[in-house]
Amino acid sequence: MFSWLQKNLPKVVLTPSFAVILWFIYGFILWTIYVSLTKSKMLPRYDFWGFKQYIRLWSNMRWYTAVENLLIFTILFVLICILIGILLSILLDQKIRAEGFLRTVYLYPMALSFIVTGTAWKWVLNPTLGIQKLFRDWGFSEFTFDWLVNRDMSIYTIVIAAVWQSSGFVMALFLAGLRSIDDEIIKAAKIDGASLSSIYVTIILPMMRPVFMSSIVILLHISIKSYDLVIALTAGGPGTSSDMPAVFMTQMAFHRSEIGLASSSAVMMFLTVLAIIVPYLYSELRRQDASR
């Protein structure tokens, strides 16, 4: 008995953690998937109801708004973050004196919570006393900025705040990538007479492919999960105009007593993440095996 324990001690020690992971992640996900296939309202019911919740979900106008918003948000968020990240990282890579300070400034929003970010931006974007007032005081008397209370524009305010929070992070990823490139390559290209901008476009950026990949995956992941920022900035409003899937899910789960419907929306989110993460992890692991 004792020798068995001694031999298997590592496995015995690992078991509680592993059991927790199995139960709290995989067990729970299976539960959610199952409940999404039942008629559960306020309390879970376990009689099978087929895919009716998914039909209800996809014929729900509010869900459509949420998905549409997610698409708009994701495209802009990912694109702008990457553009800013590349620009700042290349500029910072030009042997700048104040680099350490600037890097700290660009990245600090990442340390704040989305609730803090949302609260701050809610004030900055305030339609009466915020940016609008600032520009009018500066002499642009016609300047109007009411996106926060404008149904058609509210989703873009979330993009503004989210880019502010996360773009510095992309800068850090790209800067780390640029630093890992051998200086000799750049020197050789310069001797061949290539200009600095063409060196970046034709040689360096293509070498950044893995950084592009991981930045995009992380940003996609952030955007699918975005919940806090929406709640703090617009609370999904005005009306439901800036709703997102994560907000929809918690609304249905905790305020509308629609457990089945909430679960089906959670499963949709889960599948979306799966579709992004699995190929990514697969290619990452293969790359590592290849380099080993």
């Binding site: 592993f18 709290f24 992640i25 729970f28 899937p245 789960a253 909430a262 989110m269």
Partner: peptide, 26 residues
């Protein structure tokens, strides 16, 4: 030990799941 990579992968995957999928059972 045998199968440790799969166990690690199962741990790793937990970094990515959208927490909405575990909110209700939790």
């Amino acid at each position: 030990f045998k199968g440790d990579n799969i166990i690690f992968l199962l741990f790793l995957f937990g970094c990515f799941i959208p927490y909405q999928a575990i909110l209700l059972p939790m």
